[in-house]
Amino acid sequence: MSGFVSFVSSGPGDPELLTLKAVDRLRAADVVLYDDLSSGPILSHARPDAELVSVGKRAGRPSARQEHVNRLLIDYAGTGARVVRLKSGDSGLFGRLEEEILALRAAGIDFEIVPGVPSAMAAAAAARIPLTRRLTARRVQFVTGHDVTGALPQDLNLAALADPTATTVVFMGKRTFAELARLLIGAGMSPQTPALLAESVSTPAQKIVRGTLGTMEEIIAREGGDGPALILLGPLADTD
C-alpha cells in the first residue's frame, strides 16, 4: 500500500498567508516533514496526533541531508500515510523540490504540489512596493546568492543581473552579497542603484532597510540578523 505526498508551500512565515488548500492538507496529514522556516504557529494546523518531523536546512548550520529527506518521504508514504512536505515560501523557488519529486517518481509514489506566497512577493508587499513598473521595471528576475557549496554561483549572467530596468531579487544572498555587488558594478550596474534588505518577512522580527547597491554590504553588516533575507535591486527598491 502506498501513501500520498503533498508538497505544501507555507509562504514566508505569517500563518495568515497560508492558502486554504495548505491548511486542508495540514489538517489531513498523518506525517508532516517541515523546514525550520515553516514551523511555529503554522504547525498548529496539523492534527494533534500527526507525527511532526523537522528536516530543516539552513545555510551555515547543521542540516538534514537531502538523501535523508528523500528516504523519509519514501518510507513514510510506503506505509500508506498521508505525508505533507512543508516548505517555506513557494516550494518551487530554490526549495530543492525537484530532487524530492524525482525520488518519489523513482519509488512510484504519487504526489501533488500546493503553491504558496513566494517570499519575494511578500517582501515587496512588506516594503509597500510593486515588483514591476511600466517602462522602467518591465522584468523581474530571481537568483540565488549561493550554490551547493555556499559560495556565490560562478555561472551568473551578470549582464542580465546588471540590467537597470529589471527588478532583481537575490535569495539567500547575505553572505555573498559583497562579492556579487563588486561583480555587478564591474558589469556596469551603478553603485547608486536602489537596493533593499528584507529580513524575516511577515514575522514579528521583520526588518526592511533601504539603501543602494554600493551601501548594501555595510547595511547587511550593520542591520542583518540571522533570519532569512532577500535583497531587492532595481528602480522600485527606494520607493515607500
Rank of each mutant, 00 (worst) to 15 (best):
E16A: 15
G56W: 11
A178R: 15
T79V: 08
G92L: 06
E199G: 09
S54D: 15
M172S: 11
A221N: 00
T79N: 03
G40D: 08
D49C: 01
V170I: 15
Y34I: 08
P41I: 07
V55T: 07
T132S: 14
E217R: 03
E98V: 14
F177R: 00
L236F: 13
V53Y: 14
A137G: 14
L213W: 09
I231N: 00
A107P: 00
V5G: 03
L17C: 11
F177C: 07
G225E: 11
G211E: 07
G186I: 01
V140R: 13
K207V: 05
F177A: 08
D240K: 02
V55Q: 04
A166V: 09
E218P: 00
S54P: 07
M121I: 09
L233P: 09
V31K: 09
A125Y: 09
I74E: 04
T215A: 15
L161C: 03
T19H: 04
I185N: 11
V69C: 05
F111Q: 12
L180K: 02
I113K: 08
E217I: 00
T239V: 01
D30W: 02
T239S: 03
D240C: 01
L86R: 00
L131Q: 13
S91T: 10
A187D: 10
L180M: 06
M1E: 09
Q66M: 13
